[in-house]
Design a protein around this nucleic acid. Structure first.
Length: 502
RNA sequence: GCCCCCAUCGUCUAGAGGCCUAGGACACGACCCUUUCAAGGUUGAGAUCAGGGGUUCGAAUCCCCUUGGGGGCACCA
């Protein structure tokens, strides 16, 4: 095989989309597995919808995913890499113009003066007549005089590429096998240059893939039907036709192509919600592909090692957030403590900014908590819920939650008072989980209580919630004074409530 | 409407003619562990392999048809 050259060519008309990320990943895995080159090209010819903010988002999120390109444009301080540049289509305009002129000169393309209104009218007529919408070829054979007349009218022509009327285009798709499409299904001659002289997608993609010596075009299945247009263009340009591989689409729960309308599609949103790139990449790789073994938790390096385009599935795959969360938990549990602390910090900051906590823990405090916290985090963003009660001045425990089912308010208050005494006797100096637990268990035994009842009452009194990390570790983290203070407050509340009204 | 692609548990998938009375994972149920919640372990339920025809000694696997789903048909990408 000649040196593999693949690319991801997003257009900055929106945030990095899940589907684009998956396509980027598969291209990247394919390139790395085969020792090839992975190219990043920005398709920014849709000036009306492209923005620098979107461009930055795409770059940031690709970086976040760990997908690094070998060749690519100047972006945010990074110099251009590669010798096939520029890698930004708006900087390649002269090349498209030159290619279009060549096709024009060879009569493989022609100038079309039909106005958008005329085309629209024709399209409507065809629809009404239940005909396949296609360009009718009205300008296909204009004489020089006719063209001059249109020019004199001030009409600005587009350039149309001649699609041969009755040819069958055949190609061997790397994931789908042999595909045949008749040129009559292509909608007639194809506009390749707008009247404002900017090029259109199908044209730029062929010109650039040829110029950048792309060997394998790996993209979403939504481009399958467009592939004959590209093949025809490669031929007309006298370029080598790359191999194609069309990936199955990622689907909404209703099995339509995943869209912003129906699903969360921005990679940035998943990042903000506390997914980590290890899990995200792992999940994306498993949408439409598997190793063929029962291995599922795989690092980027392992994915590269095992990736095989020929075993990619053909059918679309529904995005399943629950499975992503499970994988995220798997990967969070595998993180080294210091690493996890670093990743948690921004999420704690978010909690602080939102006013859900009153201060940030030190790295040391957070580190001490990690053993009981790490396996309880489905996402990094769950940290606030998990330990927030440690980072606020006070918690207001709901008396209804403090009182166990078997007890009433007065009993609970009395039990907590005894427990408070026992805990206080442990003392600040020997304030460790295994110093607190035994005396409390003895108390439970002496009084004939259920350990669960007392512990739950203490838990709610001290944290304000029923689901927390292990109780004794929690009290240690809270500290001696705050634990006692919260117990006192809960006891007061309960007593005030169960006292007979005056 | 026309063209193309696809079809195994709810979901992601294994399966390249006999290893399949279809395996794994997520989610779900039960149990174990256990101070709650998780995590972990065990286990259960869950797919007549869309339907129908072939081919074959034998089909989830090959062929055809039907049905269903998706995608594409722009001076968007």
């Amino acid at each position: 095989m000649t040196d593999v050259r693949v690319r991801i060519a997003p257009s900055p008309t929106g945030q990095l989309h899940l589907g684009t990320a998956r396509t980027a990943l598969f291209n990247y895995l394919f390139a790395r597995h085969n020792g090839g080159t992975f190219i990043f090209r920005l398709e920014d010819t849709d000036q009306a919808r492209s923005t620098v903010a979107f461009e930055q988002d795409i770059i940031d999120e690709l970086h976040w995913l760990g997908i690094k390109w070998d060749e690519g444009p100047v972006v945010g301080g990074e110099a251009e890499r590669g010798t096939f540049g520029p890698y930004r289509q708006m900087q390649r305009l002269p090349r498209y113009r030159e290619a279009a002129d060549r096709l024009l000169a060879e009569d493989k393309a022609y100038q079309c003066y039909c106005t958008p209104e005329e085309l629209e009218t024709e399209r409507k007529r065809q629809e009404a007549a239940h005909e396949t919408p296609r360009y009718n070829g009205r300008c296909a054979n204009l004489t020089a005089a006719q063209r001059a007349a249109f020019d004199a009218e001030g009409r600005k022509p587009v350039v149309r590429f001649r699609i041969p009327p009755d040819r069958t285009i055949v190609f061997d798709d790397l994931v789908r096998g042999r595909v045949e499409i008749d040129t009559s299904a292509l909608g007639g001659d194809l506009v390749i240059m707008r009247s404002d002289e900017t090029p259109l997608y199908h044209f730029t993609v062929a010109v650039d893939d040829a110029a950048m010596a792309i060997t394998h075009v790996i993209r979403g299945e939504d481009h399958l039907s467009n592939t004959p247009k590209h093949i025809l263009l490669f031929e007309a340009l006298g370029s080598t036709i790359p191999q194609f591989g069309h990936l199955p689409l990622i689907l909404n729960p209703d099995r339509t192509k995943m869209s912003k309308r129906k699903s969360q599609t921005a990679v940035a949103d998943y990042r903000a919600q506390g997914f980590i790139p290890e899990a995200f990449v792992n999940y994306l790789a498993l949408l439409g592909w598997s190793t063929g073994t029962e291995e599922e938790v795989l690092s980027l390096a392992e994915l590269i090692e095992r990736f095989d385009l020929s075993t990619v599935n053909k059918a679309g795959a529904t995005f399943d957030r629950e499975r992503l969360e499970w994988l995220n938990g798997q990967w969070i549990r595998r993180l080294a403590p210091d690493d996890l602390i670093d990743r948690l910090c921004p999420f704690l900051q978010t909690e602080l900014d939102a006013g859900r906590i009153d201060w940030l823990p030190s790295d040391q405090e957070l580190g001490a908590l990690l053993p009981v916290v790490q396996e309880r985090l489905p996402t990094l963003a769950a940290i606030g819920d998990l330990i927030g009660f440690l980072l606020v001045e006070d918690v207001a425990a709901d008396p209804a939650l403090i009182v166990p089912k078997r007890w009433d308010g007065a009993t609970t208050a009395a039990a907590l008072r005894e427990a408070r005494g026992t805990i206080a006797r442990v003392g600040r100096v020997s304030w460790e989980a295994d110093e607190i637990e035994p005396p409390l268990r003895r108390l439970v035994e002496d009084r004939g209580w259920k350990a669960g009842d007392l512990f739950m009452a203490i838990r709610v009194a001290v944290t304000g919630r029923t689901a927390t990390p292990p109780l004794f570790d929690t009290m240690v983290a809270l500290g001696y004074e705050r634990t006692l203070a919260r117990l006192d407050r809960a006891i007061e509340t309960l007593e005030a409530q169960s006292a007979p009204s005056p």
